[in-house]
Measured scan of single mutants.
Amino acid sequence: NKFNKELQWATWEIFNLPNLNEEQVKAFIDSLRDDPSQSANLLAEAKKLNDAQA
């Protein structure tokens, strides 16, 4: 299933962003679980936040 692979990839990527704190990671993962179809958008937002906090 396409969404499942995207969800797994986005989850792994978010867990490995070095500049997000635990609460931010949890919030993004919760959002992914709530709406897996938004995984690409949520990953992009997480990466933006990660870069901003570098």
Rank of each mutant, 00 (worst) to 15 (best):
W9Y: 10
Q24R: 01
L32I: 13
T11V: 11
D34F: 13
D51F: 09
Q8D: 07
N21M: 08
I29F: 05
L32E: 00
N16G: 09
A54H: 10
S31L: 09
E22T: 09
K26Y: 07
A10L: 08
L43N: 01
E6N: 05
E13K: 06
V25T: 06
N4V: 04
D34H: 10
E45R: 05
S37I: 07
L32D: 00
N16P: 01
F3Y: 09
L20V: 01
E6A: 03
D35Y: 08
A44N: 10
N21R: 12
L32A: 05
N16F: 04
I14Y: 01
N21K: 13
N4L: 08
E13N: 03
A44D: 11
F15K: 15
L32Q: 01
D30Q: 12
A54Y: 09
T11I: 15
A46P: 00
K48N: 12
N4R: 03
K26W: 11
D34M: 14
Q38N: 12
E23N: 14
S39Q: 07
K48L: 13
N19D: 05
A44R: 11
T11P: 02
L32P: 00
A40I: 13
K26M: 11
R33P: 01
R33I: 14
E23A: 11
L17G: 00
L20P: 00
N1E: 09
N50L: 01
E22F: 10
D34L: 15
D34R: 13
A54S: 08
K5P: 05
L7A: 12
A27R: 14
S37Q: 09
P36R: 02
R33N: 15
D30F: 08
N50P: 00
A52D: 12
N19G: 04
Q8N: 06
S39I: 12
E22K: 12
N41E: 14
D34Q: 14
N19Q: 05
E22D: 12
E22A: 13
N41D: 05
Q53A: 09
D35F: 10
N41Q: 05
L17P: 00
N19E: 04
N50F: 01
Q24L: 03
S39G: 04
K47A: 06
K5L: 09
W9D: 11
E22I: 14
T11M: 05
D51N: 10
A52M: 14
N4P: 05
A46L: 03
N4D: 15
A46W: 02
N21F: 09
Q53N: 06
Q24V: 03
L17W: 02
I29P: 00
F28Y: 08
N50A: 02
L49E: 03
L32T: 02
S31K: 11
A52I: 12
A10M: 06
A44L: 11
L32F: 03
A46G: 01
Q38D: 08
S37T: 15
R33Q: 11
F3Q: 04
F28K: 00
N1S: 04
L20D: 00
P18K: 12
F3G: 08
F28L: 06
I29L: 10
K5F: 06
A10S: 04
K47N: 08
W9K: 13
Q24G: 00
K26D: 05
N50H: 02
L7Y: 10
L43T: 05
L20K: 00
K2W: 13
Q38M: 09
A46S: 02
E45K: 09
F3S: 03
S31P: 01
R33D: 09
F28H: 01
L32Y: 03
E13P: 02
L42T: 10
A52W: 11
V25K: 15
D30E: 08
S31W: 14
V25F: 02
D35L: 05
K48T: 10
E23P: 05
V25G: 02
L42R: 06
E45H: 08
S37H: 06
K48Q: 14
N16K: 10
A27W: 15
A52N: 09
L49W: 05
D51K: 10
N21A: 08
N1T: 05
V25Q: 14
A10E: 02
W12I: 10
R33Y: 15
D30H: 08
A52Y: 10
D35T: 11
A27L: 08
A54T: 14
L32W: 02
A40Y: 10
A44E: 13
N16L: 08
Q53F: 07
T11L: 14
F3K: 02
W9H: 13
D30K: 05
Q8T: 07
F3A: 04
L43M: 06
D35A: 08
N16D: 05
A46Q: 01
D51P: 00
K5I: 11
N4H: 13
A54F: 09
L7F: 11
A52T: 11
D30W: 07
I14P: 02
A46K: 00
A44G: 07
N16W: 05
S31N: 07
S31M: 14
P36W: 06
E23S: 11
K2I: 15
I29T: 06
E45S: 09
V25H: 05
Q8H: 07
Q8I: 08
V25A: 10
K48E: 07
W12G: 12
F28R: 00
L20E: 00
N4Q: 03
I29R: 02
I14S: 03
E23H: 13
I14A: 02
K5H: 14
Q38T: 08
L42S: 02
Q53D: 03
K47F: 06
S39K: 05
N1V: 03
E6F: 10
L17S: 02
S39V: 07
D35R: 09
T11Y: 14
N4Y: 10
W9Q: 13
N41A: 10
A27G: 10
I14M: 04
A54I: 08
S31Y: 13
A40L: 14
L7V: 14
F15E: 15
I29M: 12
N50W: 00
W12M: 14
D51R: 07
F15D: 07
A54K: 05
F15L: 15
E22S: 14
S39L: 07
Q53M: 12
L7H: 07
A40T: 12
K47S: 05
Q38L: 07
I14W: 02
N1H: 05
I14V: 06
Q8G: 05
K48I: 10
K2D: 15
E6H: 07
K2G: 15
A52S: 10
N21S: 11
A27M: 14
E23R: 11
A44Q: 10
Q53P: 03
L43A: 04
L7M: 07
D34E: 14
L49G: 00
S31Q: 13
D51W: 07
E6Q: 05
E13Y: 09
A40K: 13
P36Q: 04
A46D: 00
A27H: 13
Q38A: 03
P18W: 05
A44K: 13
S37R: 05
K2P: 14
L42H: 04
Q38E: 13
L32H: 01
I29H: 04
A52H: 10
D35S: 09
E45I: 12
V25R: 13
K5A: 15
K26G: 02
D35G: 03
W9F: 12
N1D: 15
E13L: 10
T11A: 09
L7G: 04
A52L: 12
V25W: 03
S37E: 07
A40M: 13
K2Q: 15
N21D: 13
P18A: 05
F15A: 14
V25Y: 03
E45L: 06
